[in-house]
Write a protein that binds this DNA or RNA. Structure first.
Lengths: 219, 219
DNA sequence: GCATTATTTTAATCTTGATTAGAATTTTTG
DNA sequence: CAAAAATTCTAATCAAGATTAAAATAATGC
């Protein structure tokens, strides 16, 4: 018990930054710890999406990494934290997609379309799979609150995008809340039917943004 | 063990059909057993959608019915069967919505729009809540196969509708599979954010079908 | 009201899978 | 290579919640 606590205290959470060349940061090389942890989160997301939360044991996740279930505890405190981290990843993906779309600029419609492309591309790409957030209610209060807040903010940002588009005339007038819900639902559901097929991934990236925004375009 | 098996053998699964008036069937009055079972399925769907599958115990479901968890076993063999029945209900709702839309006739677009209205209306109406099918993989093989087959058929029927609309010119040319996935995702996700608010329900029924089909309309 | 059947409860038991302790192994560092 | 640190494993333990048995209560038909 005491030793374990000690180990936990020592658990690494850093991602070392190494300089190469003459003092200019050219690359963020993740520590072995961080790399393995990432692999674990992807494996977990895969299992959760595939077999459902209750249907996946830590053993399932560990097996995908050729590890023992007990080994996972070197990276997370418990199963709840594993889920939590999967969800953090999921929200980050959405957030990043939104940020880079906004950074790229354009009309409301264009930014929205770019966001959709970014988000979808990430979900079905290398970074995936992204966990479907089906188990938020079983997270610990603190984690739940954090995830819900992130989620709420993302939704708000998306709705702001629609509003902006209506403002600048690039998007038709519509019920913003409902339209947002519809589009988000379609995106969030993707992991339910996409399981890694590369050809399908390409099709999703090329078709989905257009399909989801087709009804919004003005003129 | 033996007695229990006997009880299970006696478990009622009928919905009595009673005649009233002069021999003309005017009403299908469900047995008390069937009514209670329905209440149970709705309670279960509510809990599963709200708290996730792993997060809801049979006690949670039973509490919503002012019952003891053990009492649920009078109606279902185990938790797996409870989930299974929730999913049967969910697929039926979709199937019925599709059938009555087809029966009403019209162009491909019109039928599709009617289907969306029917389905959405049922989901947020009296019959709800409808369970999100997140745990299909943890069903017993036989149940899983059945649900997946029903689900597959429904998807095929929906795609046929889109194809028909493209054929008769009421729907724009599009990637049928992807369009179907997008719309279905948006619908399936509804229980994630709709939790029974009547005002919201009305808005969903009035807005959603239009939003989901806006991009499809030809001309 | 009485007998019978239906429904629910109480009070265990049983199972599964999460979790932990401590040892063993592998990797890194000097 | 040797010591230290990092990572993983083996072998329990533990807990939560599903499940069962049997009794108790409620409803129904006569």
């Amino acid at each position: 018990m005491l030793l374990q606590r000690k180990l936990k205290g020592f658990r690494r959470t850093d991602a070392g930054i190494h300089m190469t060349g003459s003092g200019i940061a050219t690359q963020v090389e993740e520590s072995r710890f961080q790399l393995q942890k990432d692999r674990m989160l992807k494996a977990a997301a895969h299992c959760f999406n595939q077999k459902g939360f209750s249907g996946t044991s830590l053993k399932d996740v560990a097996n995908r990494l050729s590890l023992t279930d007990a080994a996972l505890y070197y990276y997370v405190r418990n199963k709840e934290e594993l889920v939590y981290l999967c969800y953090v990843r999921a929200t980050e993906v959405g957030h990043d997609a939104m940020q880079s779309a906004i950074a790229a600029g354009g009309t409301g419609f264009e930014v929205l379309h770019n966001y959709l492309r970014n988000h979808v591309a990430t979900m079905v790409g290398e970074q995936g799979p992204v966990a479907i957030m089906s188990e938020i209610p079983s997270l610990e209060v603190q984690h739940r609150d954090e995830i819900m807040e992130l989620s709420r903010k993302h939704g708000a940002a998306f709705e702001a995008l629609i509003a902006q588009g209506i403002d600048d005339g690039s998007i038709k007038a519509c019920d913003i809340r409902m339209t947002g819900n519809a589009i988000m639902g379609a995106i969030n559901w993707i992991p339910k039917w996409f399981h890694g097929d590369a050809r399908l991934a390409a099709k999703i990236v090329s078709e989905f943004p257009g399909i989801l925004s087709a009804g919004l375009k003005n003129g």
